[in-house]
Design a protein around this nucleic acid. Structure first.
Lengths: 254, 254
DNA sequence: CGTTGTCTTGAGCTGATTCAAGCTCTGTGG
DNA sequence: CCACAGAGCTTGAATCAGCTCAAGACAACG
């Protein structure tokens, strides 16, 4: 890392700054202990994984790895938001997913390259472990494999939801679904802050920033949501929003 | 299984026939032995998994499980093609992926429901094992977990490719990408048969059948492909097709 | 207090959809 | 053997959801 690279996308140049390095993690006070990889471990096993793990943090915009880089590390996000990006040479960009506290990254198990670029949306804190070390640990603690499988299955399901959204939902449905998801990500309260820009939202939903903006004002006019400013959302009619967001949610009557 | 259920989609009624049941598999002659789950096992370990496994086969249109069914089984596809479907009550439909020989299904690890419906596109042959039994076996053979993780990672990458395709590619790019993928699926030869209908293709690419049809005739006119009939494709200019299909494939110059 | 980046809004355009025929197989029954 | 029905596919014409282009609003910042 710590390189300059020409972007093929909207931004003209990326810069990856050196992440500030800390000592091994103090797992006892880990904010994501019970919904991350480490849920698979007993408390007394944590030191074994901690000694192979480094805690890092980085600022918004920082790049953890580029698409195509050799996948040498496995990461657990402790704090903040990360976007997974694929960019086209002609400027088109697709955000394949957003990651939040507890989510893992990397871990293209078996040899391989990262299939996406990982960028910090906000200030982030994360754990890093070499894939070789993780593999050793999974031999020692089989519960880790189970946990990895469960988390992979959850991510797969999220990806499938995303596919359905992109292939068959209208702009309003997409934005409504995004707002419902953001509400969950933010903890479930009806007022929250969006960590990402309109550009990120558009590239996640397969729309333009103009369309995202227009749909949001339409939702404000229909009193489904409120906008204190561009980043501060208030959900005013969650039920309605959810109905719009999930036309596929049929009340199964059998 | 073996039930009638109203479809919420284009077809008015689904029928799930009883799959013909065979004895346990003869893994020695398994057509997908070396690119399925069982790649993780030594030859002498195969009988242990075989004794818990049932081989089944079913006809085109047969449904292995419905979205929302309790995920009690794990499947390995030996022969044929399966589509993973999500349907909306209003008739919209999305195909989240196609599966081919060696691919696995189900296995929502940890308790859970199937997030999609699995339907046979062609006549199929597949292995079925209860998730509980599989879990026991993974304790016995840790290599199975590794293999599952690797396969999950590959599927995740395919899902991400699909997301990029749906969110940022044009109709021509989508169809071109689909044809390139079909070529691989069919073994890599320039002449092959499409196992699925235009409706399936459209629901996979997030287009209408009319658009798929129009794009195909356009590709015929531009001499990139030939169409003996609707299902028989000849790739005439693979290079060109690949370039159209992957506008994201930049020749990394650094 | 100008500059810069982000977001909103408007007007016109367009790629893909919708609607509506018509065509081409395949199988079935007379 | 041909007529006929039905499903699946293609083609054309009109429409529209979302895009492009362009301008302006607003906040943050040096």
């Amino acid at each position: 890392m710590n390189i300059w690279r020409h972007s093929v996308g909207r931004e003209s140049l990326y810069r990856t700054s050196v992440s500030k390095l800390e000592r091994g993690p103090d797992c006892a006070i880990c904010p994501v202990r019970d919904h991350s990889l480490c849920l698979g471990l007993e408390p007394h096993e944590l030191p074994r994984i901690a000694e192979k793990t480094t805690v890092l943090h980085g600022g918004a915009g920082e790049i953890l790895f580029f698409e195509g880089d050799r996948a040498q590390h496995f990461f657990t996000l402790r704090e903040g938001v990360i976007r997974l990006v694929r960019a086209f040479p002609d400027g088109r960009r697709s955000i394949v997913g957003f990651l939040h506290g507890g989510d893992f990254l990397g871990g293209s198990f078996g040899a391989g390259d990262y299939p996406v670029t990982a960028e910090a949306v906000t200030r982030i804190e994360y754990c890093r472990i070499a894939v070789g070390d993780l593999k050793e640990l999974t031999n020692e603690f089989p519960a880790l494999d189970q946990r990895l499988l469960t988390m992979s299955a959850n991510r797969m399901q999220a990806a499938q939801d995303h596919i359905v959204l992109l292939s068959r939902k209208t702009a309003v449905e997409k934005v409504a679904a995004f707002l419902c998801a953001s509400r969950e990500w933010a903890g479930g309260a009806d007022e929250f802050e969006l960590p990402m820009s309109r550009t990120d939202i558009a590239d996640y939903l397969g729309l333009t920033i103009e369309t995202v903006s227009r749909v949001l004002t339409k939702l404000v006019e229909s009193r489904a949501i409120g906008l204190r400013d561009a980043r501060h959302i208030t959900i005013k009619d969650y039920r309605e929003l959810k109905v719009v967001a999930q036309p596929e949610a049929m009340s199964l009557d059998c």
